[in-house]
């Protein structure tokens, strides 16, 4: 997995490429936790695979930032990954967070 970070004043953008699974999920988590901007956007355009560990971590981080009155946006989700996330109810949980929606883009 490769993570590229673009920092602006109000937003940090993390572009994630490759495969996100239980073996490297901590790497992305640490990168999200390192950001201080009010909005952190995780762009999944070049992600080829995400397992349940990745989905669980992203939801935990979305909740954590929400409690800090910040936003974790998950965008440009590839269709195959979006399908898996829809089945587990990922977006329904995001909708319960204050300031929804936290996901968007194709």
């Amino acid at each position: 997995m490769e993570i590229r970070v673009n920092k602006e004043k109000e937003k940090a953008t993390l572009l994630v490429a490759g495969e996100l699974d239980y073996s490297n999920v901590a790497q992305l988590q640490q990168e999200i936790e390192r950001q201080e901007a009010p909005v952190v956007e995780v762009v999944l355009k070049d992600l080829q695979f995400m397992d349940s560990s990745g989905a669980g971590m992203l939801l935990s981080q979305a909740r954590l930032l929400n409690r800090q009155n910040r936003v974790l946006k998950i965008t440009h989700i590839p269709a195959n990954i979006r399908h898996d996330l829809e089945i587990i109810g990922f977006f329904r949980v995001l909708e319960t967070l204050k300031g929804a929606p936290q996901s968007g883009g194709e």
Binding site: L59, I87, I88, G89, R92, V93, T96
Partner: peptide
């Protein structure tokens, strides 16, 4: 049949 995975919410939603 669809619902939210166990552990995500306090109660079953589906």
């Amino acid at each position: 049949v669809r619902g939210v995975a166990l552990g995500f919410l306090e109660e079953y939603q589906g």
